[in-house]
Design a protein around this nucleic acid. Structure first.
Lengths: 396, 396
DNA sequence: ACACTTAGTTAATAGTATTTACTAACCATC
DNA sequence: GATGGTTAGTAAATACTATTAACTAAGTGT
């Protein structure tokens, strides 16, 4: 199984143990600083169970004790935190424009990263390049003495839910690539969990798993770059990413939102990607394929044509957000991807459209919060690392 | 919890037992006639565990033994089936046009049903009507001596995922109704599990749970009636229905597929419901609100205007199916709801549009199968009953 | 009649979380 | 500064789970 977490269907005692261990771990992840007693209260487990599990997790370097609580009353509890010192996870993104790698700790803090701006060529060569960068990354001083939990790789296309295989990467021209197998042929690579996932799914998972602040119930992460995809995550203790029958969940770039509209490279007319995506904007703005889109937009900011194109693209994005709201209904939307570098000119119309249209159905005053990530360079790579952690946590 | 099945987050030994019991039950449901040894092989449980669980389930009237296998080799196994004789579940649909009730057994066979074509008025009166019909239904000869597992109610609008409350039923003018509470005030009602769910979700659950033939991996059930909604189900042993933050998952009738199109009652322009829904078709064809839509379409079948309207509506439905494919990616689509009575004139263009557009993305030869349910009178009610069974199975 | 094979049950075993009783530690008050 | 009250955490005994290993049951083929 390459999923971050696939619930077992039938259970032995081992499964029960691992379930409770993961539950306790995720409780601390989502609410750092709880005491054993707090955890027992929240999870419904007994103090005794929590105590023994916490002890085991502390010995293995997953949890550490912190300061004493001071709530008055009786004996103060001992705060518990994820231990950020003894492990790390590797995450990599094979992007259309280059490779991105991170190593991060259990708290989601990036300990080291590498960003190489050079488009992938063929799968085998790319695997070789990636392997070399991984070796380099693992030599960073703060990493060498830690234990590696595994490696997650994010790729720009749908991954089969049956096996960790990249079905299609339209912008790379790759079809049915077993990228992890290619990677495994390389020397000096880490042990542990190895996972492959779609870039938007990985990003969504990471943003959900390492969310700072009150954790949302579920999120949809819209990745707007060369193409446009979307990842969905929900689940308190075991965040699940729906993938669907062929791994096409969240391929919203190819939902038709303008019947009879422009021809998409997928063969249909009026796909969302014909309105809001890297290649659609380049075409509409006559920007060269290698030139920086955001530079072009900024230098021609006063240009009426540019403003019109951006408004149209932004509203298409807002419409996608609205349709997502009525289809997957996440409790939070996150916008990421390289297109977010275009800033207000894109997000302005998108948020305006979404804001003015979203609440007509239920007539509730509450709005779905939207978070925009300006620089999402390492978001997918870190998300892949997060998936490794989630998977490793059920084994420990 | 009003969900059919909410996985526990932390587990005691009771939970483990119930998990294995449900797993075994669902294995027999999906593959009737397996032996204990077959089940052990499929689930990974040991023969001893399967044996003891099967014994308990047989004593309680959930499983029954059947014929001996004849596979040659050693001692033949004893076929196991769900026991259709000792229990029943009640399911009811509060529809825009009337009330529908079923009682069915563990195999999904409808033992008795009542269909009352009279639109609901206010919630309290409707609850009273429904309660009376339930009493009547339970007096059917094949039902009185059985044990009732509970009651599921399907309603025409989103249900809050937090509590069993109908948030909004636009076609009834109901807002935030605790229908089960109103029902509970009535006399002579059954004990057991009580559930409330959206009509499309209930229908989807039932079609998945009681699927005849090789069970699909996941399905989306599109309910096209006065409005247009959709339910999604996946999960081998514990079918899950995603509901989302506000219960809006599958509200595809309000996805915008024609920007700047006709005004929808939700306030937006170009929602799918403005193209394909009962009220949109009535309006386009100048059919009276109470008259039969299918009669009108059939009598004017040669009419060019009618054909054009139906083609446009059908293609909008096909487009919705396509967008669903790229958003939720179910392994099977099921079309139901009262609009299916319009037959080929609607489904023809829909299937044609979906068929010619669906495979361009992955370029795989496999197509997503589509099943059309012509008469879906009791589909939602039976689905609500199925949810009761799924819920009761984890308690037994 | 016999060996062979597979199905299913039984009793002993290992492992899980819980229960119950305990110790630890802090606070307020006398 | 000792004492009682309160909450946190641990330890040992207990109840319950699924597994293991050995068994019986019931067919087929020679």
């Amino acid at each position: 199984m390459h999923n971050a977490f696939t619930p077992h269907t039938s259970g032995d005692l081992n499964y029960l143990k691992s379930l409770n261990r993961s539950t306790i771990l995720s409780t601390v992840r989502r609410s750092p600083g709880l005491s054993r007693a707090d955890i027992a209260l929240r999870t419904g487990l007994t103090k005794a169970t929590v105590g023994s599990v916490v002890q085991a997790l502390a010995e293995r370097g997953w949890l550490r004790e912190g300061e004493l609580h001071s709530r008055g009353g009786g004996r103060p509890g001992r705060a518990l935190y994820l231990d950020g010192e003894r492990h790390y996870m590797l995450g990599a993104e094979v992007g259309v424009k280059g490779l991105r790698l991170v190593a991060c700790n259990l708290l989601g803090v990036v300990l080291a990263s590498i960003h190489q701006e050079e488009p992938p060529t063929d799968p085998a060569t790319t695997a070789k390049r990636l392997a070399a960068l991984l070796v380099q990354l693992r030599q960073a001083p703060d990493i060498v003495e830690r234990r590696c939990l595994g490696l997650g790789v994010a790729v720009p296309g749908p991954v089969s839910p049956k096996a960790p295989i990249l079905s299609l990467a339209p912008n790379l021209g790759w079809v049915d690539i077993d990228f992890l197998a290619l990677l495994r042929e390389q020397p000096d690579l880490p042990d542990g969990v190895w996972l492959l996932d779609n870039e938007a799914n990985a990003a969504a998972f990471g943003e959900f798993y390492f969310f700072e602040g009150v954790p949302p119930e579920s999120i949809a992460y819209i990745s707007a770059g060369s193409g446009i995809g979307c990842g969905v995550v929900s689940g308190e203790h075991f965040p699940l990413v729906p993938r669907g029958h062929q791994g096409l969940v969240g391929e919203i770039g190819h939902t038709v939102i303008q019947p009879g509209g422009a021809l998409c490279h997928c063969g249909n007319h009026g796909c969302a990607e014909t309105l809001v995506s890297g290649w659609a904007l380049r075409e509409a703005l006559h920007v060269d394929i290698d030139a920086s889109l955001s530079n072009a937009v900024q230098t021609r900011a006063g240009d009426g044509e540019v403003q019109a194109v951006m408004k149209r693209a932004g509203e298409a994005l807002g419409l996608l957000m609205l349709n997502l709201h009525h289809t997957l209904n996440p409790s939070m939307l996150i916008l990421g991807g390289s297109l977010m570098k275009l800033g207000e000119s894109l997000t302005g119309p998108a948020l305006a459209y979404f804001g003015t249209h979203q609440n007509d159905l239920l007539r509730q005053s509450q709005t779905v919060p939207v978070k925009v990530i300006g620089d999402s360079t390492y978001v997918a790579a870190r998300g892949a690392a997060a998936q490794v952690m989630a998977r490793a946590a059920i084994e420990v």
